[in-house]
Nucleic acid binder design. Sequence first.
DNA 1: CTGAAAGCGCTTACAG
DNA 2: CTGAAAGCGCTTACAG
Lengths: 344, 344
Amino acid sequence: MAAVRLQDVAIRAGVSQATASRVLNGSSRVPGEGVADRVRAAAAELGYVPNAQAQALARSSTGLIGLVVHDIADPYFSSIVQGVQTAARRAGKLVLLASTQRDFDIERESVSTFISHRADAIILAGSRQSGDLDRDLEKECARYLDNNGKVVVVGQPLSFGAAVEPENYAASAELAHALLGQGHRDFAVIGGPGHIRTAVDRRNGFVEALASQGVTPLVEIAGDFSRDGGFSAARRLAAALDLRHGQAVPPCVFAVSDVMAIGAIAAWRELGLAVPDDVCVAGFDDIPTLRDHVPGLSTVALSLVDIGERAVALALDDTATSSRAHEFVPGRVILRDSSVLHRP
Amino acid sequence: MAAVRLQDVAIRAGVSQATASRVLNGSSRVPGEGVADRVRAAAAELGYVPNAQAQALARSSTGLIGLVVHDIADPYFSSIVQGVQTAARRAGKLVLLASTQRDFDIERESVSTFISHRADAIILAGSRQSGDLDRDLEKECARYLDNNGKVVVVGQPLSFGAAVEPENYAASAELAHALLGQGHRDFAVIGGPGHIRTAVDRRNGFVEALASQGVTPLVEIAGDFSRDGGFSAARRLAAALDLRHGQAVPPCVFAVSDVMAIGAIAAWRELGLAVPDDVCVAGFDDIPTLRDHVPGLSTVALSLVDIGERAVALALDDTATSSRAHEFVPGRVILRDSSVLHRP
DNA sequence: CTGAAAGCGCTTACAG
DNA sequence: CTGAAAGCGCTTACAG
C-alpha cells in the first residue's frame, strides 16, 4: 500500500489538487467553508500525511535545523541540545543532530550533509579558536550563506553568521574575585587546549582578575577539555605543588570547566587528597550533574538550556543572522563547599 | 546566487543530466573514465552539492533516521543517542532527534513529523507498558510500516517493529543475589511508575529473586522515573523505615534506576543519613555520571552506547524489522561502596 | 474562489 | 555507454 497523496485527497473531495493544497496547508485565502470541509474530511478518512520532502522541494524550505555538537554524551552539550530541541519544536522545526566526538573531519562532513539536506539553518555548538577554523568548513559555510542558509555558532565568534556566547571572560573574573573574597591567596589553574576559545577566555579572565589584585597563580597546567583531561592535569598539578594531606593552607584550583574539575577531584581522591581540606577547587558551567556531586562544586552557572533556545531564535531570525548579531549570556558565580577555606 | 544544480554540472561537462547523475551518485554502470572525469571536474569547480530533498523524492528514500527519546538531558538517553549517532553516521544516515520531555502528545507529534519527513526508520527509546500505548501512535506506526517504514523500539516490546531490550528482569535478579551474597537480609525497593515496563521488570526481577530465597522487602515505594522521583521516594522510605543515623544493621535499598538512586542518596544526605553506614543502596544502568559519584554506587551496567548502535543495525535491516526481531542485551552486576555492609 | 500547468532538482526505466 | 523523457509529490503564479 502506497502512501496517500494530495492527489488522492483531491479526487475524493472532488476538487483540484491546487484547492486541496490550499486548504490543507496554510494559504492566505482559504476556500469556501463547504469545500474546505470536504477536503479536510477526505484527508482525515484517507489518513493523508503531506510529504515533507516534496513540500520542501516545491517551497525550497525544509523546516530542518542542523545542530552539531562535540559530544552528545557530555552534559554540557546535551543541555544545550535540549534547549535547541524545545525551541525548535515550538517553532515547528525539526532538528538534525550530529555529534562529532571532537573530530574535525566528522564536523565538516556533518555540515555538508546538512547543507545537502537543505537545512534552513545550522547551529554549531562547541568552541575553538577562530583562526584555527578549518578552511574547507569555512568555504562550505560561505556558500551556504550565499544560498540563504543561516549559521549560528555558540561559544565561538566566527567570521560569519550570528553568535550566542557566554561571557566567559567576565564571569571568570567575577569568580576570581569571589574566591579572593573567601580568603584565598594561593591559586592554580587547570586550563584547556590553547585552540579552544572558551578555555582560553576563561583562563584569561581568571588570571587577569587575580593580577589586578597583585596575585599570580603558582602553577598553570593544561589538559584536554574533558573529564580525563582534568584528571591527568590534576595529577601533574599535585606533583608540581607537592600537595599533601594536612597542609596548612590549601591552594585554590580553578578548572576551566566543571567536567575537568570533576575529573580533577577524582584524581586527588585517588591520591588521598580531600576537597576542600587539602585542596580547594572551582569549575565553570554548573552542569546538571553537579546537583548531586559531593562536595558541592563552586562554579559559574550558565543557563545551558537558555543558550540553546537563543541559538534557535537567532537561527530563525533572518536579520539577526545576516547582520551577524552577537548575543552574550551572563554567568552567575556560585560558591559551594569545594572552595571553602577552613583556616586552622 | 542560487545553488548549483546537477543540470549546471552536466552542461559544463558537456553531457546529459542523466550521465552526470550516474557518475556523481552511485550507479551500477559508471560511464567511460574520460566522461566521468569531466563530470567530476565540473562538479568540483562549480561546488555542486546534491539536493538531498530532490534525491529523496526521486528515490523515495531519504537517508533519515528518526529518533525519539524521553529526555535528551538524561545521561541514560544521551548515551543511547550517542550510539545511534555513531552507527548512523557510519551507515551514511542522518538522525532526526526529538526529545519529548516525557509528554505523550509531543511523542506522537514527533513521530508523525518524522513520518511526514519520510524517515527511512524510526527508533523509539524510552519504555512504557505496552498495553498503555497511545492508540493514535499505534495507528500511525501501523500505516508507516505499511508504507515500508521500519520501527525499532528500545526497552519496550511493542505489538510491531523490532526491539532491542535490556535483560532487566534477569539482571535485577542477579543483582538481588549479589546483594544477598554481601550479607544483606533487610531490603526495600524504590520502584517506578506502574506503566513503565522497564521499571516494572526490574522491580519484579529483584523482588522475585529475593522471594526465591525466602526474603521479602520491608517496604516498597514508587516514584517518578527520574532524579526527583528518587529523591521524594527516599524521604518517604526513610520515614516508613524510621531510618536513623547509627542503627545496627542498615537496610539495603534497590532503586530501579541510577538517577533515582542518586536522588535518593541526596535526600538521605539532607536527612543526615550516610551511605552505606546508615543505609545501603544499589541502582541500575551504570550511567557515565556514576564514574565520579561518591560513594560508588552498586548497579547493573548496561552498554547504553551499544544499545543505540544495535537499534540502528536493526533499523537498517529489512528482514529484522519485518520479522519483528527481538534482541536482548545483558546487564552486568557491579558492586561498589554503596552496598558494602559494615557489620558492627 | 478555483483550476490547469509549470516547476522545484533529482533518478531511472526505456531506447538507441 | 549515453540521452530524452517521464515521474517523484507538492506549491504557486497565472488565468478565469
